[in-house]
């Protein structure tokens, strides 16, 4: 008779189809080629493997967004993990599976903003906002200078302008939603976005 513990313990591996000691990602087989729509549809049906592929595919982008919103890489992994836990619990509310990426980008933005708000309560917002994660100059590559220029310019923007810009352009927030989540008037959002837009546009054009 087999020992109950050895057979009962690895529930996660059983559900994920992982073999003992094997790396999960190599066993996803055909799912690596699957579209976001297919993966999200399967995840809605409770397919943990499909959700894992989504996490591998979009997690890194969400982490960079979170780090830029927070102005710190320290908490970004936690924020992304929280975002995915929340996403798993609310997958039933995702009406259009094709839009999973923008849906996830919004969730991770919300999570990052929650942290920023919590920081405000601790009165260390200024210190946190100064610690901006601009990319290092060694990141520059000869080609795609424009991309680098935008990335560097994004990192140099004041934190409030950068947040507004990322929420608007990468997470698809409306002006009103940005105002509401950052607790600032819509007119201020407009002003911050206008300044960010002008700065970024000039930086980008300079590399044409």
């Amino acid at each position: 008779m087999l020992n109950a513990r050895s057979r009962a313990a690895p529930a996660a591996d059983v559900l994920l189809g992982h073999r003992a000691g094997g790396a999960g990602i190599d066993l996803h087989g055909p799912l690596r080629d699957a579209s976001d729509t297919i993966l999200a549809s399967r995840a809605i049906d409770g397919d943990l493997v499909a959700f894992e592929v989504i996490a591998h595919r979009h997690g890194p982008l969400m982490r960079v967004l979170a780090a830029n919103l927070l102005g710190s890489e320290l908490e970004s992994d936690d924020v992304v993990q929280e975002a995915f836990i929340s996403a798993w619990r609310h997958l039933g509310e995702l009406n259009d599976p094709a839009r999973i990426r923008s849906w996830l980008m919004r969730i991770v933005s919300n999570r990052a903003l929650d942290r920023i708000r919590a920081r405000r309560h601790h009165d260390d917002i200024d210190a946190a906002d100064r610690a901006s994660t601009g990319p290092s100059t060694e990141a520059l590559v000869e080609h795609r200078m424009q991309l680098d220029a935008v990335w560097i310019a994004l990192g140099r923007l004041p934190a409030d302008q950068r947040r507004c810009w990322l929420l608007r352009e990468t997470a698809g927030y409306s002006y009103a939603e940005i105002g509401e989540t950052l607790d600032i008037p819509v007119s201020t959002v407009r002003g911050l976005l206008a300044r960010a837009r002008a700065t970024l546009l000039l930086e980008m054009e300079a590399w044409r």
Binding site: A4, R7, A8, A9, A11
Partner: peptide, 15 residues
């Protein structure tokens, strides 16, 4: 739990 795990066809016992 041991009894169930030993039954033929059982892959694992889940909580």
């Amino acid at each position: 739990t041991e009894t169930a795990a030993a039954a033929p066809g059982v892959s694992s016992v889940l909580p």
